[in-house]
Amino acid sequence: MTTTAPTSRRATAAARQESGAGLTFLRAVHAEWIKLTSLRSSYIILTIAFLGMVGISLLSTLSVVDMASGYIAYGADPAGSEAQLGTVEEFGVMARGVASNGIVIAQFLIASLAVMQIGSEYGTRMITTTLTAVPRRITAVLAKTLVIAGTSFVVGVVGALISYAIAQPMLEPHGLNYPLIADGVIRGIVSAGVYLALIAVLGLSIGALLRNSAGGIVTTLGVLTVLPIIVAILSGVNDLFRDLGLFLPSSAGMDMVAIRTAQDHLTQVQGGLVVLGWAVVALAGALISVKRRDA
């Protein structure tokens, strides 16, 4: 053993030098990128996420336009309608927010795709192959996380930008169009990307913890949709639950991308930190689980 060790190390070094082949984090990321892009299902889900994003934004824009034209049709005065429909200033805020509204739909698709990134590997036992090629498990999971989070970020930002571009000609007749550099617009667009990225991290982590695509998707969508409903019902019982509801990822996410958040809601930064907190805690749990459990 003692005599063969130096020889084998030299041989290994030679083999490595010969081809420059060795496992690195960036290479693991590259591998995960090939995985994502070599499955038709990825494209289908990402396309639907993108279309959903733009579609919801389009509906929001139509709604703003409709309300604005209704307001203008009423004329300056009718007291009741003014309170109901809001002021011109508020239309402006709504209009500036339409680009990011699409995340309410896109998050479900992104979350599902993220769960599948690892859930399907356990389902198909591909995880065995993955962890043989990348036996450093933290590297393997972080590479996956980076790829799906990065992709989700791009879908969010590009989706929001295109939504912005589509909205402008529709808003223009009502004087509600605005430049990209207007207050909070770029922040809202980037936040949409960041939110989807963090939701992807949450989904992937839940997928890694449950090791199952179906269970992971149900759980993640449950956190995003069912939990807020339960908390909303319970908030009638105790005010504590109302406050708690603000800290759920979907609610915090809406505050995060908002142009202007409600008085009793989280600020954009707070919302972002809350969603980040969910993602980080879930990912930490996933890393510990993957590291400790048998593959």
Binding site: S19, G20, A21, G22, L23, T24, R27, A28, H30, A31, I34, K35, S38, T129, A133, V134
Partner: peptide, 9 residues
């Protein structure tokens, strides 16, 4: 290709 990519093969 996925496996090769992990090691830059």
């Amino acid at each position: 290709s996925v496996l090769a990519a992990t090691h830059g093969i």
